[in-house]
Design a protein around this nucleic acid. Structure first.
Length: 154
DNA sequence: GCCAACGTTGGC
DNA sequence: GCCAACGTTGGC
């Protein structure tokens, strides 16, 4: 089973939004970054566990756990001219952008703030893009060791 | 293929 | 709101 971290802005779509969805599941659309797309399309598997991360907010950090449901599929918002993330270069016959469906699992008992994660930036989280300066990846892999370390902080 | 310009991300 | 870091675009 794989582990991931996915960022979202709580004002736009936070973990409470996810928990309130029908089936507690939401298509993770709008990703327009090739690295992130490749991970979703090529590496994520149903059942993989996800740290839900709140970005661009007062206390950025990991706030909960979600899981991947089903295989990646083309992102329909790329084909919709009225959609915010419309991409005229994405051809339905050869889709450029993919999404995965993400299902709520639980909130963490408390937010594990980025500031706290950074305390491990020269330790167990050394190789995690999240704690490295300037990293903007919205989807990133988490090793089993990193997963256990972060959960252990809860 | 280079690289300057531009737009976006996201912490602070 | 600022701005550093980064990815993408497009002229050449």
């Amino acid at each position: 089973m794989g582990y991931w971290l996915m960022k979202s802005e709580p004002d736009v779509f936070g973990i409470d939004h996810l928990a309130a969805r029908p089936d507690r599941t939401e298509p993770w659309d709008g990703v327009r970054n090739y690295q992130a797309r490749n991970m979703m399309r090529d590496a994520m598997r149903p059942g993989d566990q996800v740290f839900f991360y709140h970005s661009n907010c007062t206390v950025p950090g990991v706030v909960g756990i979600a899981e991947i449901v089903g295989e990646a599929r083309p992102d329909p918002t790329a084909f919709d001219p009225r959609a915010k993330y419309f991409d005229p270069k994405s051809d339905p016959d050869n889709p450029r952008w993919y999404l995965v469906d993400v299902r709520y699992v639980r909130h963490l008992k408390r937010t594990i703030a980025l500031a706290e994660l950074k305390e491990h930036a020269i330790g167990g989280l050394r190789d995690m893009p999240l704690v490295r300066k300037g990293n903007r990846l919205s989807v990133m892999p988490v090793t089993p060791e990193q997963w256990a370390l972060i959960l252990g902080l809860e």
